[in-house]
Design a protein around this nucleic acid. Structure first.
Length: 308
DNA sequence: ACACTATGAGTAA
DNA sequence: TACTCCTAGTGTC
């Protein structure tokens, strides 16, 4: 699920659950053993999300950079289940033996004396972070590495604005400037993290549909108003995603339909993964083409290219 | 058992 | 443009 909203949610969750704690780190899978040993036993001071990048600041300027890539994932388990409700990402409560079985979400009841918390790592867990009541398992990341503050600055310097971090008109102006300085198609430019941080394949398709912009439109041919609306729409969608954990991008739903869409992925989008199906606005069939080796979904009728 | 897919991005050519 | 890396779920034989 990793587009920008996911990373901010993880950062928020870690901030409330793990910052200020002494962390035990390990690599059950074995591929990050050395790195884990460096941060294990130190305090997590700050968690920072920027676009799809996550930075965990430990003592002594040790910074863990994590990028989930296409299928990386964090699984978070809490001891008391306090965070199991309310849509926290993948949070599960696991009772210990002898406590009530109510609320049990994993593990069948056991008659052995094995504690159910912390849970056994399942599959290829690259990194496990633990405090006494919290376990966070990382699997399949594109990047999981320790960095110096200088290296972190270098990474950040290559990132475009993130509306959750860079508030106000300066960030928008930055975005407008970067759009105006490239003739590449807007569908490619929105995926470029040095132009704007956090947009991925789902948000790219959906934002362009919502704004009625052809993905093939040259970025520098967009009007200032259109570009500004694009930024504001991304800001809005991102904030909603961070709040709910769901990429719900439709504007045409009433309250009951929204509730349904929150549960069923197929109802959440205008164009993403809807190739060959009728456009929800005009009824013509949704197109699927490849752009930069990624699947690009759009409605060629609603999103007609404007010649300039 | 094997093939294919996915919300990403770096590198080589 | 193609290949590479990372994991797990789904679909097909």
């Amino acid at each position: 699920m990793p587009e920008g909203h996911t990373v901010h949610r993880i950062a928020n969750l870690f901030s409330s659950l793990l910052t200020g704690s002494l962390i035990r780190a390990s690599s059950p899978q074995g591929r990050f053993e050395y790195g884990a040993s460096i941060i294990s036993g130190t305090t997590l001071n700050e968690v920072e999300a920027r676009g799809k990048q996550l930075f965990l600041h430990f003592d002594a300027d040790r910074i863990l950079r994590v990028h989930l890539g296409i299928y990386g994932k964090w699984d978070v388990f809490t001891f008391d289940g306090q965070y199991a409700r309310g849509g926290s990402p993948k949070t599960v409560s696991l009772p210990t033996l002898g406590s009530s079985t109510r609320g049990r979400t994993e593990e069948k009841s056991q008659s052995t004396a094995v504690p159910l918390f912390p849970p056994e790592p399942k599959g290829a867990v690259r990194l496990r972070l633990e405090s006494p009541h919290v376990v966070a398992d990382l699997r399949g990341p594109t990047a999981c590495e320790l960095q110096t503050p200088e290296q972190v600055l270098e990474v950040k310097s290559r990132l475009g604005p993130d509306p959750m971090v860079d508030k106000g008109v300066r960030a928008e102006r930055e975005f407008l400037a970067r759009l105006g300085s490239t003739r590449r198609p807007i569908g490619a430019v929105l995926m470029d993290q040095s132009v704007v941080s956090g947009i991925g394949n789902v948000f790219r398709a959906e934002i362009l549909f919502r704004q009625k912009i052809s993905p093939y439109q040259a970025a520098d041919s967009l009007s200032r108003e259109a570009a500004s609306a694009l930024w504001k729409d991304w800001t809005k969608l991102l904030a909603y995603g961070v709040k709910t954990g769901v990429m719900l991008t439709r504007l045409d739903l009433n309250q009951a339909q929204t509730k349904k869409a929150l549960r069923s992925p197929r109802d959440r989008h205008y164009v993403y993964r809807r190739q060959g199906l009728p456009c929800r606005v005009c009824g013509s069939l949704i197109s699927l083409e490849m752009m930069l080796a990624r699947k690009l979904y759009f409605c060629s009728h609603c999103q007609a290219e404007v010649m300039t």
